[in-house]
């Protein structure tokens, strides 16, 4: 299957390894990957801060960049949600709205794509150790992807999954919230780090780069020895 990759700006600039893992896993599962070089950021940082008009510029760019794609896959639940929301952003603009609707229909988060479209739950990955999974808010609540990551992780050979206490609580990232309300964000991420520590896991797994950058950055600052892994990297471990 021909898959058009929406890498996300975080992956492009800060987490190449996640992008590489995504490509390698999908290729191994028989997909042919296309990467439109015109892609930039989905616009979420500006959009969520209330700068809708500024964000629309990036959104139009993205709609155009992915217009020819048959299937779009992204290793981020939050950015996939943003793609699906474009149609509401352009609700008063019939031309862009219908282009945004077509974009939404063909957009999938990575684990959702593997489980629901490719119908694969065991990707043949192997990783020794204890891990816990942080279900990111936009992916679970807004995109509605809850089970796919757990199904995939349950088939990773050697990996023992421990439930994360209060997993449903946000990690405190929230885009610009993390710097605008830094002191509240700190308390939230600290509670998340404490919950991760409580599981005694060696790996913290997630499916959203922003949340992982937040929790990982705080764990590193606090000297916690837990390794943060994007689920694409786990699925690419052999």
């Amino acid at each position: 299957m021909k898959v058009t990759l929406f890498a996300t700006c975080i992956v492009d600039m800060f987490q190449s390894d996640v992008g590489i893992a995504t490509v390698e896993v999908l290729e191994r599962l028989g997909c042919e990957i296309v990467f439109p070089a015109q892609q930039v950021c989905c616009g979420q940082p500006a959009y969520n801060s209330g700068y809708v008009e500024d964000a629309k510029k990036a959104m139009k760019k993205m709609i155009a960049a992915f217009e020819d794609a048959e299937v779009i896959v992204t290793p981020s639940g939050s950015c996939a949600t943003m793609f699906k929301d474009y149609q509401h952003v352009f609700q008063d603009d019939p031309d862009w709205r219908s282009r945004a609707e077509r974009l939404a229909e063909k957009t999938y988060e990575l684990t959702e794509f593997i489980v629901d479209v490719l119908k694969i739950e065991d990707v043949g990955a192997k990783l020794e150790g204890i891990a816990t999974y942080h279900p990111s808010c936009h992916m679970t609540r807004l995109l509605g992807v809850k089970d796919a990551p757990m199904k995939l992780l349950s088939h990773v050979e050697g990996l023992e999954m421990q439930p994360l206490p209060n997993a449903q609580n946000c990690c405190g990232f929230g885009g610009t919230f993390s710097v605008k309300m830094g002191n509240i964000s700190e308390q939230m991420v600290d509670e998340k780090v404490d919950s991760v520590t409580e599981t005694k896991a060696s790996y913290l797994i997630g499916a959203d780069g922003g949340c992982l950058m937040n929790i990982g950055g705080r764990m590193q600052r606090r000297g916690k020895p837990v390794k943060v892994m994007h689920i694409a990297e786990v699925l690419n471990s052999r």
């Binding site: 600039m13 987490q15 990467f35």
Partner: peptide, 16 residues
């Protein structure tokens, strides 16, 4: 309050 990752030396798009 947290560390920030250094930007990739090689962007994902260059690797691709």
């Amino acid at each position: 309050i947290r560390d920030f990752p250094a930007p990739n030396k090689e962007r994902f798009r260059d690797w691709f």
